[in-house]
Amino acid sequence: MRCSIKLAYLLLYNLLQFSGTTWIFTNMTARLFFFGRGAQVDIFYSVGLVMSVCQLLSLLELFHIADDIEKGRLLPRFIQVMERNLLLFVVFVGQEDFQSQCIVCVQLYLWNILQLLRYPHGLLCLVSSPTSATHWGRYTLIIPVYIASVLAEGVSIWQALPYFDRGMHSIHLHTTVNVRYLLLAYLPILAIASSVTVSFMLKERKQQLDIWNKKLKRK
């Protein structure tokens, strides 16, 4: 009974994330196809709410791994989830004037490609067995896409800095700290954290492809 509830929950979670990600990707692609570069002006406005919900839901994945509901390494997943939520809610949502920039559109595309490589594979693992294409995408193609995503995150933060200067945004702790300096300090942290994540992804790729090759030999 417990196993069936766990399976149903994971199926529902992965299906929700896959549906949301597919909707965002399709919506963005259709807008760019019909309106060209002019679509980027309001593209975040059109998909931002669904994107925010999907990213907030991704926080549940940390509890999945911590509670052993889902197999995976907690540290790299934590890094990926937190870096996206920080950029999305502090920079993209926090700076409406910045939302029309081209890098925002690029960033959303890369994030959604990453999710489209993950969630279909997760669904197939729950109901049957993933295909060679989805398995390759999940553990091989995802690595260069993730690296490109991190580079785009760095560019997004760098390009957003002047917008924080104009708005004089600040966070009150014991003293007033300008968000601009927090974002600048975050850039080297992003580089180190993403390097750790890539090393984990490469190890995971080797392990999974070894398992996959053994399964193929048995067949």
Score class of each variant (00 low, 15 high):
residue 101 Q to E: 15
residue 162 P to H: 01
residue 13 Y to H: 11
residue 42 D to G: 08
residue 176 T to R: 10
residue 79 I to F: 06
residue 82 M to P: 05
residue 214 K to R: 11
residue 203 K to L: 01
residue 207 Q to W: 15
residue 181 Y to F: 09
residue 217 K to V: 08
residue 107 Q to Y: 15
residue 193 A to H: 04
residue 179 V to D: 00
residue 148 A to R: 02
residue 92 F to Y: 04
residue 192 I to W: 13
residue 80 Q to D: 01
residue 77 R to G: 01
residue 54 C to Q: 13
residue 196 V to F: 15
residue 96 E to Y: 01
residue 13 Y to A: 00
residue 213 N to Y: 09
residue 173 L to A: 10
residue 76 P to K: 05
residue 139 Y to E: 07
residue 137 G to Q: 09
residue 26 T to H: 13
residue 48 G to E: 03
residue 107 Q to L: 14
residue 188 P to L: 01
residue 122 G to R: 11
residue 201 M to E: 04
residue 71 K to M: 10
residue 120 P to L: 05
residue 97 D to C: 04
residue 38 G to D: 04
residue 162 P to D: 00
residue 61 E to V: 07
residue 61 E to A: 12
residue 81 V to E: 04
residue 180 R to I: 01
residue 216 L to D: 06
residue 56 L to I: 12
residue 96 E to N: 01
residue 12 L to T: 09
residue 214 K to V: 00
residue 18 F to T: 07
residue 47 V to Q: 11
residue 9 Y to V: 02
residue 50 V to R: 07
residue 115 Q to C: 08
residue 84 R to T: 04
residue 35 F to W: 10
residue 49 L to N: 11
residue 58 S to D: 12
residue 145 V to W: 15
residue 138 R to F: 15
residue 176 T to K: 08
residue 66 A to Y: 08
residue 216 L to S: 06
residue 198 V to G: 08
residue 185 A to F: 13
residue 134 T to N: 11
residue 206 K to T: 13
residue 177 V to Q: 08
residue 161 L to H: 07
residue 62 L to V: 04
residue 11 L to G: 03
residue 19 S to A: 15
residue 132 S to M: 08
residue 97 D to Q: 04
residue 165 D to H: 02
residue 76 P to E: 03
residue 120 P to C: 05
residue 102 C to P: 09
residue 183 L to P: 10
residue 200 F to V: 00
residue 187 L to C: 03
residue 208 Q to L: 10
residue 158 W to H: 04
residue 119 Y to L: 04
residue 20 G to I: 02
residue 159 Q to T: 00
residue 19 S to T: 15
residue 143 I to E: 14
residue 27 N to P: 00
residue 88 L to Y: 13
residue 58 S to A: 15
residue 120 P to S: 06
residue 75 L to N: 06
residue 147 I to C: 13
residue 101 Q to C: 09
residue 137 G to C: 08
residue 105 C to D: 09
residue 29 T to N: 04
residue 27 N to V: 05
residue 151 L to T: 05
residue 64 H to I: 01
residue 51 M to R: 02
residue 121 H to I: 00
residue 67 D to C: 13
residue 136 W to L: 13
residue 211 I to H: 12
residue 11 L to S: 03
residue 69 I to Y: 14
residue 28 M to P: 05
residue 89 F to S: 00
residue 162 P to S: 02
residue 142 I to M: 11
residue 212 W to F: 13
residue 49 L to W: 10
residue 148 A to P: 10
residue 217 K to P: 00
